[in-house]
């Protein structure tokens, strides 16, 4: 922190303010709040300038904590509700908007136009990967021209693995499970299944996306 930052008035923009804001306590709150917004400690010289300054800072810190907790407390105070609001939301979203490309299936008849949607294949890949103990599949991409029968296709998935699983072995299991599922249900020419372990997690309460 440079000494120029220590001049309190520098960080106050009065352009939209009425005169009342320029009184001492208003100014001081704004100056201190700017430091806290930037994640910085206010300079010692400013706090030592007057006993009021430290008291104001303490008050502001308490207030900001209360602010952060306000909504969490609102949520906690909310009585339990039935699931109607969730159902309403889910009834208004459409999986078809994620259908993606159309993956053709072979048939001898000239009037047959048979396909599996890319969205259905992604769902299959997720289910196959999730079935491996201790894993959850995240993003899934089919790389290559899936609309052209026989094109080489690479499947790229991200996976979250529960803490304690052996990552390399788990990735192998995921790869095998996905390959088997695609072989069973589709006619895609899968040349590789790339598994990227993006994070290791315990439970949500211990969620640390390292």
């Amino acid at each position: 922190m440079t000494s120029s930052d220590d001049t309190p008035d520098r960080s106050v923009d009065r352009s939209g303010s009425e005169p009342e804001v320029t009184n001492d306590s208003g100014d001081l709150i704004e100056v201190l709040n700017d430091y806290l917004d930037r994640g910085e400690d206010p300079p010692r010289e400013l706090l030592d300038g007057s006993p009021d300054h430290q008291l104001t800072l303490d008050a502001l810190v308490r207030f900001r904590r209360l602010t952060r907790e306000l909504l969490a407390d609102d949520v906690a105070a909310e009585p339990a509700r039935d699931d109607g609001w969730v159902a309403t939301i889910l009834a208004n979203i459409h999986s078809e908007s994620r259908a993606g490309r159309s993956i053709p299936l072979a048939h001898p008849s000239s009037i047959a136009d048979l396909s599996i949607s890319e969205g259905a294949v992604r769902g299959l890949v997720r289910a196959a990967g999730d079935a491996v103990s201790g894993t959850l599949i995240g993003a899934c991409r089919l790389e290559g021209d899936v609309t052209e029968p026989g094109s080489p296709i690479t499947v790229a998935v991200e996976a979250s693995v529960f803490w304690g699983e052996r990552i390399r072995a788990t990735a192998d299991h995921i790869r095998t499970a996905i390959e088997s599922a695609l072989l069973l249900h589709t006619e895609l020419n899968i040349v590789a299944v790339d598994v990227t372990v993006t994070d290791v997690h315990l439970r949500r309460t211990g969620q640390e996306n390292s």
Binding site: I93, S97, G123, G134, L136, E158, S160, D199, R203, R204
Partner: peptide, 24 residues
């Protein structure tokens, strides 16, 4: 005997990716 794999405990990033891919 596998661990419960419920999505309930999944990190936000995993859930957001899946939802973006069409997982209701």
């Amino acid at each position: 005997g596998s661990l419960p794999r419920s999505l309930d405990n999944a990190p936000d990033g995993i859930l957001a990716s899946r939802a973006a891919d069409g997982d209701p």
